[in-house]
Amino acid sequence: MQTDKFITPIAHAFSAGLGSWGVINGMQVVTQFVDKDVEEIRKELLGIADASFLGKFGVKGRHAAQWLQDQGVDIPTQSNSWVADADGNLVLRLGGSEFLIEDAPDGNLCEKLLKADAKRAGVYLVPHVEASLVLSGSAVQELLVEVCSIDLTRAALGTQEVIMTQFAGVSVVLIHQDLEGEARYRVWCDSSYGPYLWEFMAGIASEHSGGPIGVGNYFSL
């Protein structure tokens, strides 16, 4: 569990007095941007939400895969792919020997891994404080073609593929996830670029009658 001194890395993109703030997993985030009914409409068209509060854990090295398996973590067998465990925790394999793990909203896998003994040759912990976003809606492809040069349609992406590319000049990690019958894109970027990318994508979303919504629209909190 994080301490409550943290604030979402996207905070600089939010004007004073915007929406309702709350603390989730020890991080101050905007829990609601506009009226609930309006947020639901935005979500259907093109919703963007901040999920940076989810716990993250990183490890790399030639023995990182074995170390994770020793901790009981199911890992993707292929490079640049991801899996979700029964609790909803995400395990992304970035390249061949690096892993990014993100907790489900009520998960504590990252906390367990941080406490595990990782002092082993070929196992190196990687701190992760990325800005983490959720995108969805009928016009999400319109947004993606505006910010990225490669084909990110469902047909082009494998079901479990991890894509490392650039959105509006910012390096991002992206996956496509079907959750609760809904297609979502998850995007991670360096936290220092979080406000820029948020403003950029939220602006495009607004052009399509969508916009920022509270992350509670995507996760049960």
Partner: peptide, 17 residues
């Protein structure tokens, strides 16, 4: 758009390199 193929990540625009 110029393209280059990364041996790990596949074909991408040159601006990513």
């Amino acid at each position: 758009m110029k393209l280059l193929t990364c041996p790990v990540n596949g074909t991408r625009p040159l601006s990513e390199f």
